[in-house]
Amino acid sequence: MATRQVGRVGLPLMNIVRMKGVPILQQLEIEECLLRTSSDNWCIINDGTDKPNIVMGVSGKPAELLEISPVLEDRIPVIRRFTGGGTVIVDDGTIFVSFICNKEAVPDVQPYPRPIMSWSSLLYSKVFQGTTDFRLRENDYVFGLRKFGGNAQSITKNRWIHHTSFLWDYKTRNMSYLKLPKRTPEYRLARDHLDFICPMKDYLSRSDFINKTIDAAGSHFSVKSSEFDALKLRSNSKFTPTSRLLTKQELEAAAIKSCE
């Protein structure tokens, strides 16, 4: 595929990598490697993942967040990722977008969670321009009072990653694997998952969303397309990622703890 470069001269360069159906654990491993071993700016877009997975933040506790018995019975993989944030279940209806940036590439953004979230919401406001009541509420992207995008971050000395799981669509059954967490956004108002979230497909198509995201990135960066195979080659074979699958034994121990 020919290299496509857009954006104004003088803007920092950002590599755009478009993927489809890449397993979410592989994506997380690549992103952590790029965050910690690369000096380039990246936007990783993965249109769906290969099968349902539950992804928890780095400090997430399965006993508090998951209905562990059905998770075990249905053999749903559970991943602890390297970033913070909450717990999501992802599948082929999820679109993932990650920005990995050098601090000096976005000098007006202080390298702390809230300023990074505010920056990202301004970028996505261009994507959803004309769409009903898009906004950032606490740490979520919402239409009105219903969430369709969850965010997580990791900040290092010179770089940061901001990644989002967008619910283009979801399967009702998958939401039953998640407990209502003890700490929730105020705007949730104790609503269950199905009353709290909404699918993005009611507002725009997958391709429109992805193309508009790339165009919005082009207003902040000089954007260059990169191939997924080239991205894999850049991965440092000596780097050991910290995102990992939880073992069956860990989940069974958490199930016992949740019954205590």
Rank of each mutant, 00 (worst) to 15 (best):
residue 3 T to Y: 06
residue 5 Q to P: 01
residue 6 V to D: 11
residue 11 L to W: 12
residue 15 N to L: 12
residue 17 V to Q: 11
residue 18 R to V: 12
residue 20 K to R: 15
residue 28 L to C: 13
residue 29 E to W: 11
residue 31 E to P: 10
residue 33 C to Q: 14
residue 38 S to L: 14
residue 46 N to M: 15
residue 48 G to F: 14
residue 52 P to V: 15
residue 57 G to I: 14
residue 57 G to D: 15
residue 58 V to S: 14
residue 61 K to H: 10
residue 62 P to A: 15
residue 62 P to Q: 15
residue 63 A to H: 14
residue 64 E to W: 11
residue 65 L to E: 13
residue 71 V to F: 11
residue 73 E to V: 10
residue 73 E to D: 13
residue 73 E to G: 08
residue 74 D to S: 08
residue 74 D to I: 01
residue 77 P to Q: 06
residue 79 I to K: 06
residue 81 R to E: 13
residue 86 G to W: 04
residue 87 T to Q: 02
residue 88 V to F: 04
residue 89 I to K: 05
residue 92 D to L: 03
residue 92 D to W: 01
residue 96 F to M: 09
residue 99 F to Q: 03
residue 103 K to T: 02
residue 104 E to A: 00
residue 105 A to E: 08
residue 107 P to F: 07
residue 109 V to F: 00
residue 109 V to T: 05
residue 111 P to Y: 13
residue 112 Y to I: 07
residue 113 P to V: 06
residue 114 R to Y: 00
residue 115 P to W: 02
residue 115 P to S: 01
residue 115 P to Y: 05
residue 116 I to D: 00
residue 117 M to L: 09
residue 117 M to T: 00
residue 118 S to V: 12
residue 121 S to G: 08
residue 121 S to I: 04
residue 122 L to Q: 09
residue 129 Q to N: 05
residue 135 R to I: 02
residue 136 L to H: 02
residue 136 L to I: 09
residue 136 L to E: 10
residue 136 L to M: 14
residue 139 N to S: 10
residue 140 D to F: 08
residue 140 D to A: 13
residue 141 Y to F: 15
residue 141 Y to I: 09
residue 142 V to D: 01
residue 145 L to N: 13
residue 147 K to I: 02
residue 150 G to H: 03
residue 154 S to F: 13
residue 156 T to P: 01
residue 157 K to D: 09
residue 157 K to N: 07
residue 158 N to I: 03
residue 159 R to M: 06
residue 159 R to W: 04
residue 162 H to E: 09
residue 163 H to C: 06
residue 164 T to A: 13
residue 165 S to F: 04
residue 166 F to D: 03
residue 168 W to N: 12
residue 168 W to I: 11
residue 169 D to L: 02
residue 169 D to F: 00
residue 170 Y to V: 06
residue 172 T to Q: 09
residue 174 N to T: 07
residue 181 P to F: 15
residue 183 R to F: 04
residue 184 T to G: 07
residue 185 P to H: 06
residue 186 E to G: 12
residue 189 L to R: 15
residue 191 R to M: 10
residue 191 R to G: 08
residue 192 D to H: 14
residue 195 D to P: 01
residue 198 C to S: 07
residue 200 M to I: 06
residue 203 Y to Q: 03
residue 205 S to E: 15
residue 206 R to M: 12
residue 208 D to R: 11
residue 209 F to W: 12
residue 212 K to Y: 00
residue 214 I to D: 10
residue 216 A to W: 08
residue 217 A to W: 00
residue 218 G to I: 10
residue 221 F to G: 07
residue 221 F to S: 05
residue 222 S to W: 07
residue 223 V to M: 03
residue 227 E to A: 09
residue 228 F to D: 00
residue 228 F to G: 05
residue 230 A to P: 04
residue 231 L to H: 04
residue 232 K to D: 03
residue 233 L to A: 11
residue 233 L to S: 08
residue 233 L to I: 10
residue 234 R to D: 06
residue 235 S to A: 03
residue 237 S to A: 05
residue 237 S to C: 00
residue 238 K to Y: 12
residue 239 F to W: 07
residue 240 T to E: 02
residue 241 P to T: 01
residue 241 P to E: 08
residue 242 T to Q: 10
residue 242 T to G: 01
residue 242 T to S: 12
residue 242 T to K: 02
residue 243 S to W: 06
residue 244 R to F: 02
residue 247 T to R: 01
residue 248 K to F: 00
residue 248 K to N: 02
residue 249 Q to W: 00
residue 249 Q to R: 07
residue 253 A to C: 05
residue 258 S to Y: 02
residue 259 C to K: 15
residue 260 E to H: 10
